[in-house]
Amino acid sequence: MSQGIPKRASGAAMAAAAVTQNIYKGANNKALVGGIMFRLLLLSALGIAMIAILAVIAWALVEGAARVNVGLFVNNPSSFRPEEAGYRPAILGTVQLIAGVILLIVPLGVGAATYLELFADRTRWYNRLIELNIQNLAGVPSIVFGILGLAFIVRGVFDLGFVVAAGSATIAILVLPTVILASREAIRAVPSSLLDGAMALGATRLQAVRKMVLPSAAPGMLTGVILAVARAIGEAAPLLLVGAATFVTFDPNFWQDGYSALPVMIYNYAGRPQEEFHTLAAAGVLVMLVVLFFINSIAVWLRARYERTW
């Protein structure tokens, strides 16, 4: 008997376990199916995004493979020797443009976001109006910024002329909302205890923001910069308006007119009657991806350096 009790007990326990197991199994099955469905849904969302990107890259590879060589990067463009033409001035133009854009959007974007998030009084109507406008600006077609750039930066107030700097400024305005919105999110994600703590220890608000909040928000801000640069590098329409030429055979200078950019060249070549130029345009897409990859890898490296968890 002394052996029987545990047996019976264990039998009862087993029965109970079986019942609970059945109950939970049912629930488990539902949860399991739901979980799988949810995962499939997420995967398909990711898949669609990936397919679109891969399709573009695959198309560019297939179409442009014949022209992928060193000459593509170091040669000057040619309008009648497509087999030798390269993107050298356009690559240099794009790198200078983007460098200018980064120099403008980092201080402006971070400054605007810091003001709105940490200093602005949200009960004031004008601060809310500014916020609303920044959000809406993100949806304005890029050609409108081109017209703005032509009227106020190339001509008018700033009167820079058709120079790289004017292109940089125009594109910077175009992508600024992205940076501001991302930077605000990044600042919001920094625990307020950091700011409060620093101030409790005697730091002024400015010191606390500069030394505690901004460095902590840097990774999120860099994400915004990466997104902005990715958009900036592919913009052709506003650049055409502010003077990026479709044919330039000399290296550009930041303050001189006569420059080109990769998307402008690709747009030009893609519309040519000759098949060879279409190949060149596809190869140009690859060049642009390489340039974008290099620029953004710097930002990704920086972001990894500043990354931290709370």
């Binding site: 040619s78 009648f80 055409l240 308006l241 003077g243 479709t246 044919f247 055979t249 007119d257």
Partner: peptide
């Protein structure tokens, strides 16, 4: 003009081979 542009680009390219000191840029708006 985008119709004339390609011919101008070729002209510019040939011209710069002979006159390397001159910088010709062509735009198509």
């Amino acid at each position: 003009s985008s119709t004339v542009g390609p011919a101008s680009e070729i002209a510019a390219e040939l011209f710069m081979e002979v006159n390397p000191g001159v910088r010709v840029s062509v735009n198509i708006s």
